[in-house]
Design a protein around this nucleic acid. Structure first.
Lengths: 218, 218
DNA sequence: TCATTAATGGACCGATCGGTCCATATAAGG
DNA sequence: CCTTATATGGACCGATCGGTCCATTAATGA
């Protein structure tokens, strides 16, 4: 096959974590953008939750034919795990960037919670957090789902821990503090806050909570 | 009809908040205990969530015929709102009693969180909190559900506020503290903690969070 | 042009969803 | 014993669920 050039590429979605391999291939090329489609699916699951989302909802939002969805994503369950992974990847990346740009570790943590509190009484706030929503909706009943959910929560914890470590070097956190515990605590607070905002907590109350949450960061 | 004695009684379930009226009536008497049946329904919704629970699940758990369920509870949606109300009523009552029996307001708050942390890695912990689960699953999309959910959260907040008020008189909380804010904060922490435990947080981590949460109570 | 390969549209599937309806059973009042 | 009133079991309903299958389309390499 030397010398042969394939112009047609296809992404194999073998695992939940993004396109693993890009394969040169024959045959009719895909007509949609898999990333865009995946983002659309994330949005639907994020808004409605796993159970309440129907294939029909997904097909409409992703603008795909049923065949294409099953061909490329393998059905509802598989698609959902990919959505979880994508969501986490996205927002962990965003947070990491935020931490890099922040003027201090402590300031970063505060700004993250402040930003979340500001979503109260806004459409964005009604969606909550896909990982938190899924943790609550699916728990540990389904191991296929439990794994990426737990990983999502762990990922958030890692970002917080990085921020806390930095805050420690900056003198804003005691050198004796248990950073793992505080990081877990911040994940808990974040999850709770977003849940309450989703349930309709008013903006004033949401904001008043931030300094209380931050009391544990010292 | 004076002098007439009716031996047959029936509870009318007009609203979501328990049997409103007990009516003397003719006709075939009910064969099941409505309270028991409701408790069984609570258990199912609590474990599986609203969407994932089917009428079939409910019928099995409540040990009712479809007719009886629809006759007495009016369908899935109505039954669910009654379950929410019953759940909240139950556990608010339990908490209130706990507060009465507690040696101090602050001690009560601490013991509540400690008890929740202790459900980590235990079957009970996997269920989370019905109100919190529902807040997360249903958000504000459905006003019929949003109302009792919000009320459930408010109810929990009231208990915490009562505890904080007492703690204030006992000198464990600053007289300048914003009790409403702290109470909301405790609801947030509770919701987050139970969600993380539901997702599989280990017991050690859960316990290490309690003192951090309590830092805001001062 | 033709063979090969893959994507697509849409018909179709059995299962299950929540919900209605009616015949029957069971009580009390008269 | 008959009427009245309610509860119950279960047949039945249309809609929708997630998923499969296949004929057609569209691209390639030869």
């Amino acid at each position: 096959m030397q010398g042969t050039t394939y112009l047609n590429t296809r992404n194999l979605h073998l695992g939940p974590v993004g396109p693993i391999i890009t394969v040169m291939t024959l045959g009719r090329p895909i007509e949609f953008d898999p990333e865009k489609a995946l983002d659309a699916a994330v949005e639907v699951f994020w808004c409605k939750g796993y159970e309440a989302t129907s294939m029909s909802d997904l097909l409409t939002a992703m603008n795909l034919s049923k065949s294409s969805l099953y061909q490329s994503f393998g059905g509802k369950r598989l698609l959902f795990t990919r959505c979880l992974a994508r969501y986490q990847e996205r927002f962990t990346l965003e947070l990491s960037r935020g931490l890099n740009d922040a003027k201090s570790g402590r300031h970063f943590i505060e700004s993250v919670f402040q930003a979340v509190a500001d979503t109260a009484e806004r459409p964005e706030g009604e969606k909550g957090c896909l990982v938190g929503n899924s943790a609550s909706e699916l728990g540990q009943r389904d191991t296929v789902f439990a794994k990426p959910v737990a990983q999502g929560l762990r990922g958030l914890g890692k970002v917080f821990k990085a921020a806390l470590t930095r805050a420690q070097t900056e003198g804003d956190v005691s050198p004796h503090a248990d950073l793992n515990a505080v990081a877990s605590y911040l994940v808990t607070s974040m999850t709770g806050l977003r849940t309450l905002i989703k349930a309709g907590l008013d903006k004033r109350a949401a904001r008043s909570m931030v300094p209380l949450i931050l009391k544990a960061v010292e």
